[in-house]
Write a protein that binds this DNA or RNA. Structure first.
Ligand SMILES: [Mn+2]
Ligand SMILES: [Mn+2]
Ligand SMILES: [Zn+2]
Ligand SMILES: [Zn+2]
Lengths: 137, 137
DNA sequence: TAAGTTAGTGCAACACTATTGCATAGTTTA
DNA sequence: TAAACTATGCAATAGTGTTGCACTAACTTA
């Protein structure tokens, strides 16, 4: 993804593209998987944790990334689809490989609709499957 | 649940019932919901965090409790059914109320079976639904 | 353009969760 | 009883997430 494309993308979501934000976004896209704050921090040594953190929060608030809590102990971030508004219709299964620790969006697997008992309302959901990925099998 | 019943229960799972363990187990059962380490710690002031922690780990290892990572920031623990071996067949949906913070086992809602793409194996899963519970509605 | 205002970044500190080493107390076994 | 094991308490530690504050870059507007 070119820097230009990234800037367009962020602008289209009303986020001002800064050097840091572009870098964080590009890293997420290029990795093709969900990354934690610590993962990102490592990838570029010289950048402040809090800056990355705030970039991610901004992205999250503007439907640029969504979070995945895969039970590994740290929240991970993955890029949203273009048209994502992070509501029920955009929810999908996430796969956490217990061998390599990779977490992947299974966008082809929407979260199945569950009929809750009377009185419960449904805002959001996380469906994490733990297992071994093809790479590690 | 009487102390005697608790002791029988723990023994049936090959865990020696000690005063602390009985207390932790009883508290979990009586609460009727999933509790975090911090929740438990508060409920009985004078007990060491690490002792509770180790009791919970022992319970988990012996299929007496299972964990729920509801995204609240702390792992919660809930009592297993008698015949639970914490495998795929025992998995159920958990409901996290974003108002009161209560996490409940929805044992009546088994985790739906998902057909993963070729090459993925399935060991375990967590399906958390966030919303508002009847109490808070 | 210069001054004023806003937004982003870096640094440091902090809260909280989870976890462990080690000493001690308690229990079981030979 | 003495030896061996198990559980507990205490203290320390690592890791994650989060925030206050000062500084700088960017933008606005007179
Ligand atoms: Mn995803
Ligand atoms: Mn449960
Ligand atoms: Zn893998
Ligand atoms: Zn509630």
């Amino acid at each position: 993804m070119t820097n230009n494309e990234i800037e367009k993308k962020l602008e289209s979501k009303n986020v001002k593209p800064t050097a840091m934000r572009n870098l964080v976004y590009k890293t997420l896209v290029d990795s093709g998987k969900a990354l934690s704050l610590a993962d990102l921090e490592q990838q570029f040594e010289k950048v402040e944790r809090s800056t990355i953190f705030r970039a991610l929060k901004t992205f999250e608030d503007n439907f640029i990334v969504h979070t995945v809590d895969d039970g590994s102990g740290s929240v991970k971030y993955a890029v949203c689809d273009d048209d994502c508004t992070c509501n029920i219709h955009d929810l999908h299964v996430h796969f956490y490989c217990t061998r390599c620790g990779r977490t992947r969006c299974m966008k082809e697997l929407p979260i199945p609709n569950i009929k809750l008992p009377e009185g419960y309302t449904y805002d959001n959901a996380q469906f994490i499957i733990n297992g071994v990925c093809p790479r590690c099998d």
